[in-house]
Computed example of a mutant assay.
Amino acid sequence: MDIVRIISTVIYILIVLFILRQILPVKGLKNLSSDDLKEKIKKDKNLVLIDVRKPAEYSQGHIQNAINIPLPQLRRRVKEIPRDKEILIYCRNGMRSRQAGRILKGKGFSNIAQLRGGLLWWEGKMEKTL
């Protein structure tokens, strides 16, 4: 086997692993449907909603009472998130919230969930920030 073939194989394996990591579920991260989240919001006033989208996306429409901590800022702003409450993270389609779940699990958070399908599947009220 020549060196080019070895390098190509290694690159291919790394790409496959990267893609799998993006799409596989995060262990310990609960997935809530839109209906489940609406019920939880009604019942649990201590629920912390975190929108991990960019500020411009957040201002165009977000779930009421959600705080905006964009995914690239999450690691440095993790101290703003209470550890004694249930955390619900969401984004547009679930990809960034899954990454946020990995980050929070790595930081020791245990009571976290994400909105399955993100805001694309959300069927509840939204508010805009001007």
Results as ranks from 00 to 15, higher is better:
126 M>Y: 07
53 R>P: 11
12 Y>A: 12
111 N>H: 14
37 L>G: 06
29 L>A: 14
124 G>M: 02
121 W>R: 11
92 R>L: 07
34 S>I: 04
57 E>Y: 07
64 Q>P: 10
87 I>N: 06
53 R>H: 05
117 G>F: 02
74 L>D: 03
76 R>T: 09
117 G>R: 00
17 L>G: 03
94 G>D: 03
36 D>R: 07
124 G>C: 02
25 P>S: 06
93 N>E: 06
18 F>Q: 03
20 L>H: 01
128 K>W: 01
100 A>V: 09
125 K>T: 10
96 R>S: 13
21 R>K: 09
14 L>M: 12
71 L>N: 02
89 I>W: 04
70 P>C: 03
95 M>N: 07
127 E>L: 10
78 V>F: 06
78 V>K: 12
109 F>I: 03
35 D>H: 03
44 D>V: 09
38 K>H: 01
61 G>I: 01
87 I>L: 09
61 G>C: 03
124 G>A: 02
11 I>A: 15
126 M>H: 08
19 I>K: 04
4 V>P: 02
10 V>E: 11
102 R>W: 08
95 M>A: 13
31 N>S: 14
58 Y>I: 05
9 T>M: 13
55 P>D: 07
85 K>Y: 14
114 Q>S: 14
96 R>P: 04
77 R>L: 12
119 L>C: 02
51 D>F: 07
89 I>L: 15
4 V>F: 15
113 A>H: 12
33 S>D: 14
1 M>V: 10
28 G>P: 02
63 I>T: 02
43 K>C: 01
61 G>Y: 05
100 A>M: 09
24 L>D: 02
99 Q>E: 12
76 R>M: 11
124 G>F: 00
77 R>N: 13
76 R>A: 08
40 K>I: 12
114 Q>R: 10
92 R>C: 01
44 D>I: 06
42 K>M: 03
5 R>A: 15
20 L>M: 07
123 E>G: 11
109 F>V: 03
118 G>A: 00
122 W>T: 00
89 I>A: 12
80 E>Q: 14
128 K>D: 00
104 L>F: 04
81 I>E: 08
10 V>G: 11
81 I>M: 07
104 L>P: 02
72 P>L: 01
106 G>T: 06
4 V>Y: 15
63 I>L: 03
55 P>E: 06
7 I>V: 15
96 R>H: 05
8 S>C: 13
89 I>Y: 06
35 D>A: 13
119 L>W: 00
54 K>E: 14
4 V>I: 15
32 L>P: 07
56 A>Y: 13
6 I>N: 11
51 D>P: 06
76 R>D: 09
3 I>D: 15
109 F>P: 01
101 G>Y: 09
32 L>A: 08
34 S>E: 08
80 E>F: 06
112 I>K: 02
22 Q>M: 04
73 Q>W: 04
94 G>H: 01
43 K>L: 10
16 V>S: 01
91 C>R: 01
67 I>K: 14
53 R>A: 06
18 F>A: 08
49 L>K: 05
28 G>W: 05
17 L>E: 00
